[in-house]
Structures are given as C-alpha cells and as structure tokens.
Design a protein around this nucleic acid. Sequence first.
DNA 1: CCAGTACTAGAATATTTCTCTAGAAACTTG
DNA 2: CAAGTTTCTAGAGAAATATTCTAGTACTGG
Lengths: 200, 200
Amino acid sequence: MSPKQPRGEETARRLLAAALEVHEHKGPEGFTVQAVTSTSGISLGSLYHHFGSFDGLAAALYARCMADLLDALIASLERTRTARTGVRAVVVAYLRFAEEQPAKARFIHASSYAGFLPAHTAAIAAAKAPRIERLQSWARPHAETGHIVDLPDPLTEMLLIGPVAETARRWLAGDPTIDLKQASRVLPERIWQSLRGPQE
Amino acid sequence: MSPKQPRGEETARRLLAAALEVHEHKGPEGFTVQAVTSTSGISLGSLYHHFGSFDGLAAALYARCMADLLDALIASLERTRTARTGVRAVVVAYLRFAEEQPAKARFIHASSYAGFLPAHTAAIAAAKAPRIERLQSWARPHAETGHIVDLPDPLTEMLLIGPVAETARRWLAGDPTIDLKQASRVLPERIWQSLRGPQE
DNA sequence: CCAGTACTAGAATATTTCTCTAGAAACTTG
DNA sequence: CAAGTTTCTAGAGAAATATTCTAGTACTGG
C-alpha cells in the first residue's frame, strides 16, 4: 500500500496528479479508473498495487488536497497575532486557495457526499487531525480572553468557514455572479463582526 | 414531457418519490435508473416517456426539492417585519428544513457538482427565479434603509446562507459533532451581527 | 363508438464500469 | 552475484450502466 521504492513513489505521485487532472477536466462522472490510467500512462495493475482500489486512490487524493488547503490556512494564520487579523487571514487564504488551485478545491467540494469517504474515514481523519489541532489551538486563547465569542465547538468554525466555503463553492461551480476579489475585500470584516467577542 | 392525463401525473410523482428514496438509502452511487424503476414498480418506458432521460428526472427532482426549500424560507420570512427577525427566521427555517426533510436537503447538497445540472440549467433556473425574487424583494428595502448592510449582490446571501448551509451539510453527511438545536439557538444572532447595517 | 393521442411495458443492445490474476522486470539486500 | 521483494504490464472477466425500440394498453375528444 505504501511505496517502498523510490520508483513506486514516483508512479503513485503521477497517478494522483492524473486523477486530479481527470476530475478537473471530465467532472465527477468522468472520474474513472480507465481515464486515470490513460492520462497517466500507467497500467491498471500498478494503480491497484499502490492504492488497493479505485476508492483508495480517491481517498488518498482527497486527503492530500485537504491537507494542502489546511496548510494554506495555517500558513496565513500563524503569521498573525490578534484575533481580528487572524480571522481575516483565514478568510482571504481560503478564497485565494480556491482561485489558485481550483482543481484541488473543486475535488474537495465535489467529494463531500462521494461514496469513498465512509470507507476511508480513518485514514482521512489521520491526515486532517494534526492540522485541525493547530487551527484550534490558535483560536482557543482568543476565545478564552473573550476576543472571539466562545461558542459550542463546531459553531465558531461554521461562522468562519461557512460564508467562504459557500462563496468558493458557487464560484467553482461556474456561477458568473461571484467575484472572488470582491469577496476577499468585503467578507473578512463582516465575518469578523459575527465572531468578535464581548472583550474588545 | 409534461403529463396530459391524470394517470401520467401520478406515475411521474411516484417516480420522483422513488428517486428521492433511492438517493437517500443508497447514496449518489446507487442512484441509478434500475434502482428507481425497481423501487417505484414503474417501467423503464414510462420513466423515459415522462422525463426523456435519467438526467431529466434528476433535474426535475432537484428543481422540486429546491422549490420546497425556498418555499419554506419564504413562508417563515414573510411572517416577519423587521430586518433582524427576518434574518433569524430564515436561519431557523433552513435548519428545520434540513432536520425535517433530510432526504430533500441531502439531494440538493449532493447534486452541486452533479453532471445533470449544466444540461438543465434553464429549467431549474425557471423554478428558482420567482422564489429568489420574493426573497430579494424582502431584503431590498431593508438594505436601502440601512438596517442591513448594502453589499454587492451575492455577498449578503453568502453571509446569511453560508454558515447555515455548511452546518446542515455536515450534519447531513453524518458529522456527530453537529447539534442542530444548538445551532438554531446560537447562529441566528451571530449571523445577524454580520449583516446588520449602520442604521440601527 | 372510433380515431388518435397519451401512456405503459419489458426485452435487447452496446458501452462502460471495477476488479482480479499471472507472470515478467527492476530493484534491494546480504 | 544471488535470493527475495517490490513494482509493473497486459489482458480477461463479470457485472452494471443508460438508452432505444417495438408493441401493446388506456384514455379523450368528436
């Protein structure tokens, strides 16, 4: 399952890259084993050798894309000190990720209800957990000092990510009324207004 | 395409109901023509007679679910007068719709990137347009008087719907950390904070 | 009651899907 | 260099897919 020779690592990488390209160009319906093997030039057997199943490859790709997104958020966030600048940084970073890496963002969003997630929940959670932890440990002190509202656990995240994810989702789906630049100008301050705590 | 005999209308209804049930119980992957004909007890020929293609049926179901959701929002919204109560009403109504009609909500969310949408954009937009118009015409006066912030067009909607849609999405996907009751208690006021305008 | 239209039925078709197997080639280690 | 493991190729196979087609049944308007 995990490559033990450099050569294998390389072909696994190629398969993931090809899979992302296929999903981007042909959509979720055209996302098939054969399409991935054709555009990667790598045989069916190799794919099954490395990932066990097609769902296994999809799950691995999902974990990688999600990790890239979270890393982008973390990188922006950990340059900040105050609650307000942190919130604004995350919002802008998410929108920028969608704009600069639309294929990855589209794959993440399109896979929310995909069939491969339930089977590989554990592996995906393992990739997400440490990154989520870093984000939460940034937020915790600000919630305790009252600079950010102290809400039940996932709700703060919903308020922060919700508007941005919805904006990105529609833009990625081709909605022509969405302007990402405009969104990164307007949304940060408004989202901050929904998160600011009693302690100014 | 549109039924001209009462008998036809009835089987079209049964097909849509069966389609929703199949999608709910077997997920997007198990959402197939054969599954729909089996569980509805209605023949392949009838399905194609009424909807032209399987994508046609999916698009019709999507339009109907979306209409139901928007109608629920409108019904709650138009009982209100002030900007604040209106915003809160929409938030609560969306969460209640997800809880009471999870199958419809799940179908809507799961279809965001589905292949059938692009082909039937026009028909779906026709079902949505008048309802969206009613929602916007509620918001317009409040934006003009400054009780709600006057932002570029889709952004107000993103701030209002974003956190709620994300919360519903995760709950529908089986996230056990989401508590809808808690969300309808906390989110309305916070979302209002992000939307309130300069004119108090 | 007759003609024409709406509707229903179900088999047949042509593609396309994922998965598996068996063995050859390449690399690593002792 | 030799043994053992990893990686890769190629192709076969079984199951499932959306759609088309032909034929038959119910309804409706005149």
